[in-house]
């Protein structure tokens, strides 16, 4: 989905709220969601960094704010009040842009980190199991508050120090039982004919499984998606891809369950993931034989067989 929000805000621009006069200085563009752009800003006087999302559609953006507020409220209730999550949303206001139009914006806590893909490239794939486990924990927390994240993808997971992930862009967050508000085709359960788009825990777990494929087999996943007809896209194809991937093989069983919606909830999925994670950690991974060596072995075995065959035949 696209927005009609095409302009950008140069570094140093001051965004002053129309209603509450909060004032923010733009540092740089952090990213782009379906409903608007996210900038890194510094609150004037306070000199603290925040993330500011500005859009063009008041209803769309307010709807996101509602989701964030109700998640924060529910979390606060669960943790007995006074939790740090309450401060997630800092300000909601309007800004008159250089085009003369008023744009709604909201300000939230700035999450420092790399997108999941970049994090693993920089720090190594060995971080993948623990980041994945933490991410399942985040999803479980959200699900227990009654929400599906919806648009789970590599770009929407930021990872901070020591593999601590945060979900960003709640534009797709949907209360359980409603139609998922925003999704990305390749991560979407409906796109793969694996179920509805009704928000539930297994919708996110399906996307999580695709996210694993995307991290380790992005090229083959893209080829698979492009090569199949709409009616032949099935979770079987994804499970097959997982089973034939050297990197994903150890937990292709886990992926299978996620793809077929067999986990009751994210906690159960996290527990299964943890078992796999420990196994992977304790058993020293023996370096797999390189492909050329396997090939050579096959060839020599064939030669041996032929030789024996000839020997037997030529024997008097």
């Amino acid at each position: 989905m696209t927005t009609s929000f095409e302009w950008t805000l140069p570094r140093g621009t001051i965004i002053r709220g129309k209603w509450k006069q909060g004032s923010y200085r733009v540092d740089r563009l952090l990213g782009e969601g379906a409903n608007g752009k996210v900038f890194l800003v510094e609150r004037e006087r306070e000199r603290m960094l925040y993330a500011l999302k500005i859009g063009s559609d008041t209803v769309d953006l307010q709807s996101e704010v509602n989701v964030l507020q109700s998640i924060a409220r529910q979390k606060q209730k669960r943790s007995g009040g006074g939790s740090r999550t309450g401060a997630f949303l800092v300000d909601v206001d309007d800004f008159r842009g250089s085009d003369g139009k008023e744009h709604p914006f909201y300000v939230m806590r700035y999450i420092k980190g790399l997108t999941l893909g970049d994090y693993l490239v920089r720090n190594g794939k060995e971080w993948f199991p623990v980041v994945g486990f933490n991410l399942l924990g985040k999803l479980a927390e959200l699900h227990e508050a009654g929400w599906t994240f919806g648009d789970l993808k590599v770009e929407n997971v930021l990872v901070g120090d020591y593999g601590r992930p945060e979900l960003v862009d709640y534009g797709g967050a949907t209360a359980f039982g409603k139609g998922v508000r925003q999704f990305t085709e390749i991560y979407d359960r409906g796109y793969w004919n694996a179920g509805t788009r009704t928000a539930d825990a297994s919708y996110d777990l399906f996307s999580f499984a695709v996210l694993c494929l995307q991290l380790h087999e992005s090229r083959r996943l893209a080829q698979l998606s492009a090569g199949l007809l709409p009616q032949t896209r099935t979770p079987d194809e994804l499970a097959k891809l997982a089973a034939t991937s050297a990197a994903l093989k150890p937990f292709s069983g886990w992926l299978r369950k996620a793809l077929y919606g067999e986990f009751a909830n994210a906690r159960e999925a996290a527990a299964a993931w943890q078992q796999w994670m420990h196994r992977a950690g304790t058993v020293p991974a023996s370096a797999p034989a390189p492909r050329w060596m396997k090939g050579l072995f096959a060839v020599s075995a064939a030669v041996l067989a032929t030789t024996i065959y000839w020997l037997l035949r030529s024997a008097p």
Partner: peptide
Amino acid sequence: TIEELPPEKRGEVVRVIDDLSE
């Protein structure tokens, strides 16, 4: 219009819109 409402008052209105839309 919704834009004329201050942000604190928008939440409830948008909640109604979202609910009816769904």
